[in-house]
């Protein structure tokens, strides 16, 4: 029984800040609610408007899917690439690890302000460097075509963070004798990577693909600070739209419906990933084998 006492902070926290709000937000999602007046039940009205009559909703969905499905593979591959490089380095590995990790501690508002300046079309570091080698850089965040790639590029600055550290640890835990087997069979570096490294680290890769998809779907701060959703709504991401609906328009019912659709979609995507994961993720039957 003492266990309940020790766990009680979390149990209370879960009831008050987890379960209760989830139930309430489901109820709000079927109401018209502006915080000042009592919620007014309207059934599936919000969902109906969202899915059928709200062009911004579909813009936000499109932008968020674009960001998620472009960013996730790039940042997983990027982190893995750096981890492989560090794993091969015989001297100075710690120094490289520290240097690669450093950008990832800069998050939120600071990284947004910094990249706003780096990506400045006229005087930013990126375009003025491109100009030195005779390339006219794009307008980056000020162009509807380049705004989303700009945000993906910015997030690639931190590929050396926690994800890379975990990949590195996974690479180091691959038993060396497996590589020797490939060598005996006359396999080269690619065969070693494809038939030993990749299967052995696939559980870790899988976990991070699942996590990064969820994180990317929730992108918010960068867009709020850097673009406010523009230009031409090209960075109006799902959570930014939700925030505007909730805290600018005080349309809490509508925003709750948005939140629930996001939850359902996240659960669905995760479920599909676990199904697909069975095909490519290799779990050792006995880790000590």
């Amino acid at each position: 029984m003492l266990g309940f006492v020790f766990a009680s902070p979390w149990i209370i926290g879960f009831l008050v800040f987890g379960l209760y709000p989830m139930v309430m937000s489901f109820y709000f999602s079927m109401c018209r609610y502006d915080v000042l007046r009592i919620p007014q039940f309207i059934g599936l009205g919000n969902y109906d408007t969202l899915l059928l009559r709200d062009p911004y909703f579909w813009t936000a969905v499109g932008n968020t899917l674009y960001y998620t499905f472009v960013r996730t593979p790039l940042c997983i591959a990027g982190s893995l690439f750096l981890a492989i490089l560090i794993n091969r380095a015989t001297t100075g590995a710690r120094i490289y690890r520290t240097v690669f990790f450093l950008p990832s501690i800069i998050t939120g508002v600071v990284v947004s302000v910094l990249w706003l300046w780096l990506l400045n079309p006229q005087y930013g570091l990126i375009n003025s460097t491109l100009q030195l080698i005779g390339i006219e850089g794009p307008l980056w965040l000020q162009s509807p075509e380049w705004s989303k790639p700009s945000l993906v590029l910015m997030s690639l600055w931190s590929i050396g963070g926690g994800r890379m550290i975990v990949f590195l640890a996974a690479l180091q835990s691959v038993p060396p004798h497996l590589y020797e087997v490939v060598e005996l069979d006359g396999g080269g570096a690619w065969q070693k990577f494809r038939h030993v490294t990749l299967p052995m680290i696939s559980p870790v890769l899988f976990l991070w693909v699942v996590l990064e998809v969820i994180f990317s779907l929730q992108v918010f701060t960068e867009a709020y600070v850097m673009t406010k959703g523009g230009p031409l709504n090209s960075t109006l991401f799902y959570n930014l739209y939700l925030y505007y609906k909730a805290f600018d328009d005080f349309d809490m019912g509508y925003a709750s419906a948005l939140a629930w659709l996001l939850l359902l979609f996240s659960v669905l995507v995760t479920f599909v990933q676990f199904r697909l994961g069975k095909r490519w993720v290799y779990y050792e039957a006995d880790p000590r084998g």
């Binding site: 709000p21 937000s25 969820i214 779907l217 929730q218 809490m252 948005l258 939140a259 996001l262 939850l263």
Partner: peptide, 10 residues
């Protein structure tokens, strides 16, 4: 796994 947006409003 729960997106904080789901609990944020209540």
């Amino acid at each position: 796994m729960l997106p904080m947006q789901v609990t944020m409003i209540p």
